[in-house]
Design a protein around this nucleic acid. Structure first.
Lengths: 341, 341
DNA sequence: TTGTACGCGTTATCAA
DNA sequence: TTGATAACGCGTACAA
């Protein structure tokens, strides 16, 4: 009763050729005469033959499968880029193996090993920050990988990303020029997240450029969530020296901050300015729309896939691609009230 | 220079046992004496041995890999459920193969075949609506699958979902009781999307329960996006017989509608009520907060994984799990103005 | 252009 | 409890 799954042998028998010929018909058709090719493909269709994955992987030593480890799928930050990555893989006949690390370095390391042992031909990693061990692990096994969401000049490691420091620096400079001097920050944990870290560093650097003290800069680190954004906002506002602007590590935190501001009856941007980062859909929908940093997530995902595929073809290929970002101006950033006229 | 990857043979040689014993140590340790087990595991560790995926798949006829095809990763609707699905798989030593169909039935079918030929042990499918062909394909090959996001009584097919009709019906009834008579709908394309279809049907059924004509009910179908929500909203509003409420197929569309209402200077809910569906984060952040339907996405993803894993263990296992939903009351739904006092 | 035959690294059966 | 050994299904030198 079991509908036996056809194998290469079955096809070969049906077409009166050898298994080698059938294999060639499927993998390098140009090596086979049109006539036999046709004959073979007809049988393939008739039998509904599909290559056995395990056998193929074993013999060919590749799976056409690529792994990605993202910190989370819970918010839109990585979703768009990942979708683009997956689509580009699909266009090239490859599939995506997905894992998420919950922003936990240890989990990420396990996931990397797991995906590799699952036969991933290459990996997409988010950000640069992880133990050298794991880089060695990949390099020893010659597993191609590409780092996304962060840009880093490094001839030995491919990346497709943007300069978080620079973008954050530019946004901060803009705020300073509007008259802000009293800053506060809500960020993701910077210790294990180079994107978050660089965004904070970008803010500090810009402040220092203008001689603003950063020693006691109020900074709250938390996981990305609306709830955390709201709570951190409250904490900042209730400090003695209330900031005129709160810069958030991403739009999700900023959305929480905006929500909380409404609840506390604070006018944005008159009483308090708020900025985000990433320009996810959220940013344009909330009132007032967020001033944030636009990142071309889809393009990044697509390019990451292309770089990875190139590294499969050409082992020594490496590329560092820097995508530019741009500030999106919403009404959440304005002059501080003592500057208004 | 190539650091040769160790095989089972290497371990066997190193430990002075047969490959069979090594294999047993790894897969069913209880069959091996504590002494040899220890000896073997030491060598495994020393050599950094990891089983070869292809060989394992070939010999064991399973990959410990599960596929999922979601319509899109671009919005948060599927992300949370998918993450939970993936995490539950991870807890059971399995991995997720991910593909997205862009809401295209043909693409979905290709993806299903592709994931199966990539060795997926089972599949997560979204919604019930697809060709019988593809169901037969899976059933012929005895590939376990579970349908999520839709509930359907069906002894032969597992599902973990909620009743879109019922939820939508309840929400509509609530609106009617507030005094609304003049409805309009913005929905995803219903032809290939049973969730969207049932949501629309739920609305119509509720209206008919109260003797409200549904023959000429204004209905716009479009892809989920803020932009489309905004445009469809405008179209509805500019009709001769302006509705007092616009019910949206999901929160993303509703967010677009709210945005457009602001731009057109319409007060929500006095001038126009708006409802969503899904209760994604967005819903609570926009002003006014959306009245929407809460769905326990995470629980759904987790349960889907559990059902799937059970089907692997016990071939004939099937389950239909219905999750309840609840209406979340935001200020986007209120009495129509002619009803206000 | 086609066929032969071996190897890939496991798991699983059977016997010891 | 352990060891030989036969599959598993495909890719690919090498030969014809």
């Amino acid at each position: 009763m079991k509908p036996e799954i056809p194998t290469l042998d079955d096809v070969a028998r049906g077409a009166n050729v050898s298994t080698a010929t059938v294999s060639r018909c499927l993998n390098s058709p140009e090596q086979v005469s049109a006539k036999t090719r046709e004959k073979v493909l007809k049988i393939v269709k008739k039998l509904g033959y599909t290559p056995n994955f395990g056998a193929q992987a074993l013999a060919a030593k590749r799976t056409n499968t690529f792994g990605a480890i993202v910190p989370t799928m819970n918010n839109a930050i990585f979703a768009a880029g990942l979708q683009a990555f997956q689509e580009e893989l699909g266009r090239n006949g490859a599939t995506l193996l997905l894992a998420s690390s919950s922003y936990n370095a240890k989990v990420e390391e396990e996931q990397i090993r797991s995906l590799v042992s699952r036969g991933a031909d290459g990996l997409l990693l988010i950000g640069t920050q992880r133990s050298e061990n794991i880089y060695h692990f990949l390099e020893d096994r010659e597993i191609p990988f590409v780092i996304a969401w962060s840009y880093q000049e490094n001839k030995n490691r491919s990346c497709v990303g943007f300069d978080n420091f620079e973008a954050s620096h530019a946004l901060t400079t803009k705020a300073i020029n509007l008259g802000h001097k009293n800053f506060a920050i809500i960020s993701a944990y910077t210790a294990s997240n180079d994107r978050a870290d660089n965004r904070v560093k970008g803010i500090k650097a810009a402040l220092e450029d203008y001689g603003i003290e950063t020693q006691n800069l109020p900074l709250i680190e938390c996981e990305y969530s609306i709830q955390n954004g709201a709570e951190s906002f409250r904490t900042h506002i209730e400090q003695d020296n209330r900031p005129t602007i709160i810069m958030c590590g991403n739009d999700v935190l900023a959305a929480g901050a905006v929500k909380q501001a409404h609840e506390m009856g604070l006018k944005i941007p008159d009483d308090i300015s708020i900025t985000g980062f990433d320009n996810i859909e959220l940013a344009s929908v909330i009132e007032p729309a967020l001033t944030t940093v636009h990142v071309r997530h889809k393009r990044m995902g697509m390019l990451a896939a292309q770089v990875l595929l190139k590294q499969i073809e050409e082992k020594s290929y490496r590329d560092n691609i820097k995508l530019d970002t741009q500030i999106v101006e919403g009404r959440s950033l304005g002059r501080p009230c003592y500057q208004q006229r």
